[in-house]
């Protein structure tokens, strides 16, 4: 399993995937921090809370897409290329192969996330008040968790579909669903029901989407923007525990991988 993971990771280092994604992250983080306040007529490094809030809005689109693109051909790619049979004839179980792929790709994602946002963060933190470091580290960690949740979905996609073309289609569909359609649908239901619906289950639906979990994780740690988002009025305080939210993310890693392992038998 470690051999597979090491190969996936080193492949992404060699083809400069890690470097490219890290550069994109770093540039975005710095640009958002610097130009984020342009609407207010001021250009310059923004405060930590505003920067993180803006980054969250960007990363919530970007990371799921990157993670899905990273993993969608993990298995189906080997199958289509014709290298899967040889791999499976080796003394390793199918589950080890899946887990190795997932962990290796996760390491690549982690390396680019931490390097990209870490570099930008190192430059920003110096100008922010003390304690910002923890918020920013929390943001990076939650971004990685969300990435791994979507990576797990991508690996599941790569097992269940027959060819790469369909895998990429399904991966894009998942991205549309979780990142764009899901929230709009919830919002639509709220609007159409004109408040007649019992809203108790509504926050639970938000927790079922790793992208929303990521948003909640970050927004609720920031006093300034919490009220700005208005989310506080929808989500009961009990659901905002970072441990609960992180736990949900981990669940989102385990479930698709388990489905993949089951289908791969």
């Amino acid at each position: 399993m470690r051999v597979i993971a090491a190969k996936e990771f080193s492949d992404r280092i060699r083809n400069r995937w890690v470097l490219a994604v890290a550069a994109v992250f770093a540039v975005f983080a710095l640009a958002i921090s610097y130009f984020g306040g342009a609407q207010q007529g001021a250009v310059g490094v923004q405060g930590m809370e505003v920067t993180i809030a803006s980054l969250v809005s960007l990363v919530i689109y970007l990371i799921p897409l990157i993670a899905l693109m990273l993993g969608f051909d993990a298995v189906v790619g080997e199958r289509e290329r014709g290298s899967l049979d040889l791999l499976l004839s080796m003394p390793l179980t199918r589950f080890e192969l899946l887990l190795g792929k997932f962990l290796g790709l996760s390491a690549a994602l982690a390396a680019s996330t931490l390097a990209g946002f870490g570099l930008a963060g190192a430059m920003l933190v110096m100008q922010w008040p003390e304690g910002s470091l923890w918020h920013y580290a929390g943001f990076m960690l939650s971004a990685l968790l969300m990435g791994m949740a979507f990576l797990s979905m991508a690996v599941a996609v790569s097992v269940v579909v027959a060819d790469r073309a369909r895998a990429s289609g399904l991966a894009i569909a998942l991205w549309f669903f979780f990142v764009l359609v899901y929230d709009l649908t919830l919002l639509g239901i709220l609007v159409v029901s004109e408040g007649r619906l019992d809203l108790d289950f509504f926050p639970l639906l938000l927790l079922a989407n790793p992208a929303d979990v990521f948003r909640i994780l970050n927004i609720f740690s920031l006093e300034e923007v919490k009220t700005l988002y208005g989310l506080a009025t929808v989500i009961p305080e009990a659901y905002t525990s970072p441990w609960l939210l992180a736990g949900i993310m981990v669940l989102w890693m385990i479930l698709p991988l388990s489905l993949a392992a089951w289908k791969f038998k």
Partner: peptide, 16 residues
């Protein structure tokens, strides 16, 4: 499996 060697038909390796 450790004691088995297998050469598939049309073997494919990693180009990189």
């Amino acid at each position: 499996r450790r004691r088995i060697g297998y050469l598939p038909e049309n073997v494919v390796f990693y180009d990189n």
